[in-house]
Each structure stands twice: as C-alpha cells, then as structure tokens.
C-alpha cells in the first residue's frame, strides 16, 4: 500500500497509470550498470519515479572530463567513486526509495551476482564487452535488458525481453570499434538515458509499447528520432541455435 506521502509525491503519474502501477514501481528492483553519461539521467528519473530499489554498479571514479554529461556528479565529486556520488544525489532526490551503490566493474565472473534478483537491467555501460556480458546474464536469468549507447550527437536504444525478442547479439553481432576518447555532448546520453528510463517505467507498469524488436536511433544534429525494425536471429550465438540450451 502506498502511504499518503507517496500518493502525494507521485500524484501526477498515478493520475496517468494508477495506484497499482505505482505500487509495482515501488516494489521493483532495477540494476543500472554504469553511473556515467547514460546511468546518471536514467538513475535520476527512475529514482524520481519511485523505483523501490535502484542498484548502481560502476567501478570508476569521477573525473573532471565526465562533468559535461554525467549530471549527478559535480566539481566537488572529482575523485569519488561514481556510485557513491550518484547514490548520494539519488537518496536526496527521493527518501522513499532504497539506493544501493556497488563499486565494481562488471566482468564474466561477477556479472550474474551483481545483477542477481533484479527485475530489470539498464545497460548504461560504455563498451560492448560489458554489454555482451550483460546480454548473456539477462538471457540466462530471463530478465529484460534495456540497451543504450551514445557517441557525439548520436545514440541508440532498444529493449530486450529474453526469449521473446531480438537480443543484443542478434542486433549487434559485431561490436562497434572501441575508441580511447569518445567525443560526446551531454545532451545525447541525457536523451538516450531518459529513453531507457522511460522503457523501464513502461515495462514495470505495463504501459504502452516497448522498444522491443526495434532499434531507436537518435540523431541530435538532424533532431530526428527513428526506429529501425530488428529481429531475432535463428543462429544467434547468444539466444539462437548457436548456444547450448535453446528455449
């Protein structure tokens, strides 16, 4: 049951999707992997929306060059663990929720434990090595994964529901190249991170049409947002015939 205080806090969105949906948000556990450009806006809006438990996972510390886009961190946070800096702001934003900060870099060995028990995983990572690990873990645990990625004025996002939709490796069988310094304007991860948060809210509340089997493509230079249809690949290494156990 929602308290009077919660009903007041969430009044404008309860008016949109009802009390039961708000209760679902309050009992949801969302893991956000990456407390950077995508993770900051996604986490802030999910915290504000009343996600019961927001778990942040990141093994990095705040650098001054992060501050143009990683909007939960400020000048005084330089040198702090990103998850600590972000968790502090999220707790200040919403007293009703639990914020868990895990200072760790996702790898093959720890991924399953780090995202264990989550209802939803938000891919706010900055490289495809970690993203492919998250995809495998999401498929194994049958937990939805909301992908986002950015560069420059460009971004992409998609929602993966294991067993039902194209997975990350169906869509991106080959990873885009790694770059040392990825140029980016802060608004790009702001927009994509909020698309991801919006997907999370929709999934948990059962509202609208998810970005499943569609790749949303944002072009900030042209100011256009397009979706491209994508589909499950039968021979996908992660979710198709190419893996050991097929659904």
């Amino acid at each position: 049951m929602l308290t009077d205080r919660e009903l007041e806090r969430y009044r404008r969105q309860v008016a949109l999707f009802g009390e039961e949906a708000q209760e679902r948000l309050a009992s949801a556990r969302v893991v956000i992997v990456g407390a950077g450009g995508l993770g900051c806006p996604a986490a802030l809006y999910l915290a504000a929306a009343g996600i019961g438990e927001v778990r942040l996972v990141d093994g990095d510390v705040v650098d001054r060059t992060n501050l143009n886009r990683q909007v939960l961190h400020g000048d005084r946070d330089v040198g702090r663990a990103k998850v600590e800096s972000a968790a502090e702001k999220l707790r200040a934003q919403n007293l009703e929720i639990t914020v868990v900060a895990t200072y760790a870099t996702v790898d093959d060995g720890n991924a399953a434990a780090l995202v264990g028990g989550a209802d939803l995983i938000v891919d706010a990572a900055d490289n495809f090595r970690v993203r492919y690990i998250l995809n495998r873990v999401a498929l194994g645990a049958r937990v939805p994964l909301i992908h986002g990625a950015v560069r420059g004025f460009y971004g992409q996002a998609t929602t993966i529901v294991p067993g039902l939709t194209a997975c990350l490796e169906c869509i991106f069988p080959v990873a885009p190249p790694e770059e040392g310094i990825i140029p980016v304007v802060g608004t790009t991860p702001g927009i994509i991170g909020l698309v991801q948060a919006n997907e999370a809210i929709k999934y948990i509340t059962g509202t609208g049409d998810l970005l499943t089997d569609r790749l949303l493509v944002w072009d900030g230079r042209a100011a256009t947002m397009t979706t491209l249809p994508v589909e499950r690949e039968e021979d996908c290494r992660a979710c198709g015939n190419g893996r050991c156990s097929r659904r």
């Binding site: 990456g34 950077g36 450009g37 995508l38 993770g39 706010a124 990572a125 900055d126 490289n127 495809f128 986002g148 990625a149 950015v150 560069r151 420059g152 460009y154 971004g155 992409q156 991106f172 990873a175 885009p176 190249p177 790694e178 770059e179 990825i182 980016v184 991860p189 790749l215 493509v217 491209l228």
Partner: peptide
Amino acid sequence: VALFPPVAGG
C-alpha cells in the same frame, strides 16, 4: 536501403 553505424559509448 538504410545504413546505420551503431555507437558504443555511454
């Protein structure tokens, strides 16, 4: 024909 080079940053 549509062509999209995906991005990788975060």
